[in-house]
């Protein structure tokens, strides 16, 4: 559980001093281990120095970062739209929910690796394979969260809204969507880190572009420095996207006390 301070930092996007100190300690220990590794019998490439990692970072190709980012964002947007639309259908039709709910539970239980294997076996196009895996993993999360949030909309508010006789579209846009937005933003946060990890694995096995592909190349070259550098890019990318989401959340949910 997050402490109050940690929670406040997360909400404001501030970087706490303690986190900075712990990262510095880790870097110092890494550098010491890197320098001591030959005398400890560890191959030099296993724990590269920060100079070597810096060199790898300088060689990062922005195109691969952009490709991975585009795959993640594109797949998340599709998953989000599909998930929310199906959730709306399930919310409005209990019989549809009865049919789809077990299927969704099964989909959520399927391991990511199985989705990747299915994608490789079923589809030829690389982009389609990656999109398929991401949507299969992230779509059900959006769907289940949206459906739960819709069910949680207060009966009082639903009754009030209906008393003014809105159209079905107005009912969704003026009541349901704003009411479920906090849950949807939480889903985005969860799916963002999930998608970054899944896209990397998917690119690792099937793509010729993207960060996952570059990680595969680095592995073939036994370059821990390159793996470290590309991993750092992934982590920074995730933090940046999360920071954007937090800012968006603070903006659209400013009505919350």
């Amino acid at each position: 559980m997050l402490s109050d301070q940690a929670h406040a930092n997360e909400l404001t996007g501030r970087f706490p001093r303690q986190a900075f100190v712990s990262i510095v300690i880790f870097c110092v220990l890494w550098e010491i281990m890197s320098r001591l590794s030959p005398s400890l019998g560890i191959p030099p490439f296993a724990i590269p120095s920060f100079v070597r990692i810096g060199e790898s970072l300088m060689k990062i190709t922005p195109l691969d970062v952009i490709v991975t980012l585009a795959r993640v964002i594109g797949a998340l947007v599709l998953s989000f739209v599909g998930g929310v639309v199906i959730a709306m259908g399930m919310y409005r039709s209990p019989s549809l929910e009865n049919y789809l709910h077990p299927l969704v539970r099964i989909l959520m239980a399927v391991p990511v690796v199985s989705w990747i294997l299915f994608a490789v076996l079923w589809f030829r196009g690389v982009e389609f394979r990656i999109a398929f895996v991401l949507i299969a993993v992230c779509g059900p999360v959006f769907l289940v969260d949206a459906l739960d949030a819709m069910r949680g909309v207060s009966k009082d508010l639903r009754g009030m809204m209906r008393s003014f006789r809105p159209t079905a579209f107005q009912y969704f846009t003026k009541l349901m969507f704003p009411a479920i937005l906090p849950s949807l933003i939480t889903s985005w946060k969860i799916n963002l880190s999930l998608a970054i990890r899944v896209v990397t694995i998917a690119e690792l096995v099937g793509a010729v572009t993207g960060i996952g592909h570059q990680l595969a190349v680095a592995q073939e070259l036994f370059s821990v420095a390159d793996v470290f550098a590309w991993t750092l890019v992934l982590v920074v990318l995730l933090f940046l996207l999360e920071a954007l989401l937090v800012r968006f959340e603070a903006r659209v949910l400013r009505w919350r006390a």
Binding site: D156, L157, G159, M160, S163, F164, R165, K174, L175, P178, A179, L181, L253, W255, R256
Partner: peptide
């Protein structure tokens, strides 16, 4: 009855995001 009937409920039932 659209626009012809209005209600005031026990709790205010205001939309908190508005």
């Amino acid at each position: 009855f659209r626009g012809k009937m209005a209600t005031v409920f026990q709790q205010d039932r205001l939309l908190p995001w508005r």
